[in-house]
């Protein structure tokens, strides 16, 4: 450490060559122009789709099959006013959110722990792949036997679907860590703990984030399949019930709510991911 002090005793500046940073004020349009364009076009595309859908009702033989945006809107409004929507949506939200969180936590922990120890990973990898390959829908009847037809079974179905995706992506992230970075920490005198916390954990973040993103639909699928198979509550039940009465507007209305739910989840995970990936190149 004495050498350290001397090192800093006489700092001589090496001339900085390379890019320089300068302040540049941008106009409102320069900052937001692209975003505005993209959003306007998105809204336009959505409107065009809705108009075409509405018109399709006049063309096809039986308008009942395709329904129409107006009918879906009326159905939605009816459900909102009589409280049907909030009850069923709340049930599904609980299932999806709980299932997602449980699946993510267990998947990330298992991925990090298993992939950190080479031997354990080599032993368990084929088993994990085998379990991952099982269609989770096939497990639904079994889960009904085990956990009944309440909310638990849907939460677990969602969690199992999410678990494997998060596990595999996190494990891949951990195993992809640059050997050179680990060596760099070893050279600094870092312990195994330093390596795990300061290199492997941040390096596996992008894998984990991929897992978080790709598993969102699977949380929804798990919960809704569970509701379709056996339930008297939730959006899946609402879909089943509406379809049984040939109420296509009702099916579409429930699907719209599911879509909205998925988008909210996407936005939340996207915000987390962009926070975790700040160091990534600017235009990626």
């Amino acid at each position: 450490m004495s050498g350290q002090a001397e090192t800093r005793a006489a700092p001589v500046q090496v001339s900085a060559s390379g890019p320089v940073k300068e302040a540049r004020r941008r106009s409102w349009w320069g900052k937001h122009g692209r975003t505005t364009t993209v959003w306007s076009l998105r809204v336009a595309a959505l409107l065009a789709f809705l108009v075409l859908w509405q018109l399709a009702g006049n063309v096809v033989a039986n308008p009942m099959f395709v329904s129409s945006p107006v009918a879906v809107w009326e159905q939605l409004w009816a459900w909102v006013t009589d409280g049907t929507l909030s009850t069923h949506t709340w049930i599904t939200i609980q299932e999806v959110a709980l299932g997602y969180v449980i699946g993510v936590l267990t998947g990330a922990l298992a991925g990090f722990a298993l992939a950190s120890v080479r031997l354990i990973y080599d032993v368990f990898e084929p088993f994990m792949m085998a379990l991952y390959s099982i269609p989770k829908v096939a497990l639904a009847p079994l889960f009904i036997v085990w956990f009944g037809i309440g909310i638990d079974m849907k939460v677990i179905l969602a969690a199992v679907s999410v678990f494997f995706l998060v596990f595999l992506n996190t494990a891949a992230g951990v195993r992809d860590v640059d050997r050179g970075l680990i060596d760099a920490v070893r050279l600094m005198g870092g312990s195994t703990r330093d390596i795990a916390l300061k290199v492997v954990l941040p390096a596996s973040m992008s894998g984990l984030m991929t897992g978080l993103k790709v598993s969102i639909p699977y949380a929804l699928i798990g919960a809704v399949i569970g509701e379709l198979v056996a339930s008297n509550r939730g959006l899946g039940y609402l879909i089943n019930d509406a379809a049984a009465q040939f109420n296509t507007a009702g099916v579409f209305a429930a699907v719209v709510v599911l879509t909205a739910l998925a988008m909210v989840l996407n936005a939340v995970v996207g915000a987390i991911a962009s926070r975790a990936n700040r160091w990534k190149p600017l235009d990626a």
């Binding site: 700092p11 090496v14 940073k21």
Partner: peptide, 13 residues
């Protein structure tokens, strides 16, 4: 200490 070393190698900005 880090800020000083960074200045030494000319990367202060």
């Amino acid at each position: 200490a880090a800020a000083e070393l960074i200045a030494t190698v000319g990367l202060a900005d």
